Structure formats: structure tokens, C-alpha cells
Amino acid sequence: MMDDGAKPIIVKRIKKYAAGHHGGAWKIAYADFVTAMMAFFLLMWLLGSTSKGDLNGISEFFKTPLKVAMQGGSGSGDSSSIIKGGGKDLSRQDGQVNAGGVDTAKKSFNLSAAKAALEKEETQRLQTLKERIQSKIENSAALQKFKDQLLLDFTSEGLRIQIVDEQNRPMFPAGKADLQQYTREILEEIAPVLNDVPNRIGLTGHTDSTPYFSETGYSNWELSADRANASRRALVQGGMQDNKIIRVVGLASAAHLDRKDPFNPINRRISIIVMNKKTEENLMRDAGRIEVGTDTEATRDAAARGAQATGAPATK
């Protein structure tokens, strides 16, 4: 039994709490920092051990990578590149490894010789076409009787096939652009042969010097152009590809075949030109050329005269 005069005993219990766990995020950040520093020092070491010429080559490669890759030069996989050899085997020291075995040495090309070779090949192709048409004329019953009206020769534009009139066998009725049936047969026989070459086609209509003029202003110019276009339609109907034709013109009586006799029936003709590449390129380039604002001497003089007439200052 407790004495009434004794002091009570007080027991204090202190609860201890352990510090929270910090986790491992700092380790990841530190590892990234160390990796970045290693990469930085490696870059500095590489830059310090590379010559100035190689550095310029690397700089040019990243400026125009396609140009350097196609034309070659420093930084394009040669042995002087900062990464020796390149390719799959980085231990190579003597240039990029080429699994295809293609000779990567720089080569020079003679453009004039290549152009001459292409022209020679094209001339041979047109010569072969001429021989095929001549053979077809000799062996075709439909064409043999008209062989005197079919003229084949070469001009500066290419192979020219001319269908000319005869006194008693005109290709068209007088003053009209309607094809005679035998003219249509000639064109339909020739049409498939023209598909055998990639060359483009031009058609030109001609008349003789016989005056022709209607009350509506229809003249030999319109007549020759309409006859050329009628011939184009007959060629397409005969099987020639329509997209091969890039020129259909009428020259009326401006370019006679017989200059001594402007009324000779052979001056009335249709010319089919199988164009060479040079003629085709010139035609397409000139057709697509538009010159705007060309400051030539003639335009400056015209501007000066106009300014004097109006009192305005001339522009220079």
C-alpha cells in the first residue's frame, strides 16, 4: 500500500522518428552530368587533334552534305576525314569501305565527246527510220503506187517526209482542207512507224502561189494550216501517239519546193518532220521563254522619247 506522503513517479516516453528516405534521383542526374562532361572533353580532344584543313572539310560537309557526297572532298569518307574510313569498319584507315566494289575514284567526262556521241546515235536512229519507211513504201501495195509523191531527206531539223501533189493526183480538193482517200491511206500507213522512235513530230502545210482569198479573209495561210491539222488528225487515227506532235503550222506559199516555178504542183505539200533533239529543245525552250522588263538600249531610247513627249523625266 502506497504511502500517502510519497511522490508519484512520472515516466516520459519519447517517440523517435527515422529520417525520410531521399531516393536515387540524384544518381541519375549525376550520371547524366558525368556523361555530358565526358562527351564535351571527347569533342574538345577531337577538335584539338584535327588539322585545319580537315575541319574546313567537315564544315563544308554539314553545310552542303549532298554536294560533298556527290562531288567528293574533305569530310566525304576519305582517309583524311576525322572518322577514318567510315563505312561499317571504323578501323579502316584507307578510305570508305565500299561493299559493292565500285571504283570511287574521281573521273572527268568530256561533255563535247558525249554530246557528239549522242548526236551520232540519233543520226543513226533517224537513218534507220528512213530506211524502214523506204522499205515500207517499196513493199506496201497501198504506198508503192504513190512513191513518186513521197520524198524523204534530212534537214537541219531532222528527217523530213514530204507528201507532194501531182497534177492529176492532188492530196486535197482545190481550196479545201479535206483529205483525199488515198492521202489518208498514205498517212495511216506511215503513222505506226513513227512510234518506233522517241523523237517528236512537227507538221507543216504548204500551198503554191495561186492566189486564194475569200470574202471572209480566208487565205492560203489559213488553208495551209488547216491542211496540216487535217494531216495530224489522220496520223493520230492511223495509230501515231498524239503527244508526239509538238508543232503544226501553215506556211502558205512562203517556202516553195520548186523555187523556179511557184505554180508547180509539188509546192502543194505536207511536210512531216521527225525532229532531232536539238530542234526539239530549241522549240520547247523558245516557246517557254517570256522576257519581262528587259532593259535594252531600244527600250531605254523608247522611254526617253516618251518622256520628252510628256515632259516627264526618263527612267534609267
Rank of each mutant, 00 (worst) to 15 (best):
M1D: 09
K12H: 11
I14E: 09
K15W: 05
A18V: 08
A19N: 09
A19I: 05
G20A: 04
H21Y: 13
G24L: 10
W26Q: 15
W26R: 15
A31T: 08
A31Y: 05
M38I: 14
F41R: 14
L42M: 13
L43S: 12
L43Y: 09
M44K: 08
L47P: 15
G48T: 00
G48Y: 01
T50D: 10
T50I: 12
L55T: 03
N56Y: 02
E60G: 01
V68T: 03
S76R: 02
G77L: 01
S79V: 04
S79W: 04
I82V: 12
I82L: 13
L90T: 12
D94I: 10
A105L: 12
A105C: 09
K106G: 04
A114H: 14
K115Y: 10
L118W: 10
E122Q: 00
Q124I: 09
K130Y: 02
Q134M: 03
I137D: 01
E138S: 14
A141R: 07
A141T: 13
D148E: 12
D148N: 15
L152K: 11
D153Y: 14
T155N: 04
G158I: 06
L159M: 03
Q162G: 05
I163R: 12
I163Q: 11
V164K: 15
V164C: 13
N168L: 13
R169M: 09
G175E: 15
D178L: 09
Q180W: 04
T183H: 04
T183N: 05
A191K: 02
V193G: 03
P198L: 14
N199R: 02
T204L: 10
G205K: 03
T207S: 07
T207R: 00
F213N: 11
S214N: 14
E222K: 15
S224R: 03
R227W: 00
A230D: 03
A234D: 01
L235R: 02
Q237F: 13
G238I: 08
G238S: 06
M240Q: 11
Q241K: 13
K244A: 02
V248L: 00
V249S: 12
R259I: 15
F263A: 08
N264P: 02
P265C: 05
R268N: 15
R269W: 10
I270N: 00
N282V: 11
D286S: 15
V292C: 14
T294Y: 13
T296E: 08
E297D: 13
A309G: 09
T310M: 02
A314H: 01
K316D: 07
